[in-house]
């Protein structure tokens, strides 16, 4: 499965690079993946085996019409036609990581409850780069389930400074009593 995800990711990367729109495809796929992960209805609609594929592609067109490049939309269509919509987030993440690695960088995914301003993102990138010892490309994601604060993930390393994380450890403490 990892092989398949990496295969798709590398294929998409090469296509985007050949079209000269790697950066936009990367960020568009990443935000589509975020939307898909934060919306269970959309996810179940796109992965519903009962729903015909042309309905699913119609949903994708509705969602992305005019907001994303035609290449990105085509790639998403391809995934829906292959019944791989459920793997889109993993593929997008792998694509971003492989692209960053090809630039000799790692991806830092920063989740916050509210949008962050550019200055804060730069400071976070610098601090995370110092803490992990890697050159980083930052992908900022707004995720209300964080509640407050920030969760940063670099590769397998997670630095959780979120209110949700505090509450989770509180919940664990209460349950283990």
């Amino acid at each position: 499965m990892d092989d398949r995800i990496n295969g798709y990711a590398k294929g998409f990367l090469e296509l985007a690079r050949a079209e000269g729109s790697l950066e936009s495809v990367e960020s568009e796929l990443f935000s589509i993946a975020e939307t898909l992960e934060s919306s269970p209805e959309l996810r179940s609609a796109l992965t519903d085996p009962q729903l015909p594929n042309d309905k699913k592609t119609a949903i994708v067109d509705d969602l992305l019409g005019g907001k994303a490049s035609s290449l990105t939309v085509g790639l998403v269509h391809l995934l829906v036609d292959q019944d791989r919509a459920s793997e889109l987030p993993s593929i997008a993440r792998a694509l971003v990581e492989i692209a960053a690695a090809s630039r000799d960088r790692a991806v830092a995914e920063i989740r916050s409850a509210v949008p962050l301003d550019d200055q804060t993102i730069e400071r976070l990138a610098a601090a995370l780069g110092k803490a992990t010892g890697k050159k980083l490309e930052v992908k900022a994601v707004v995720d209300e389930s964080v509640v407050g604060g920030i969760v940063a993930r670099v590769g397998d390393t997670v630095i959780d400074g979120s209110v949700a994380g505090r509450f989770q450890s509180l919940r664990n403490a209460v349950q283990s009593r």
Partner: peptide
């Protein structure tokens, strides 16, 4: 949590991160 509280949380996270 209002905007300033969010900012305060982010600042605290940043401060702790920069100490690492």
């Amino acid at each position: 949590l209002d905007a300033s509280a969010h900012q305060a949380l982010v600042n605290r996270y940043l401060a702790e991160l920069e100490k690492m």
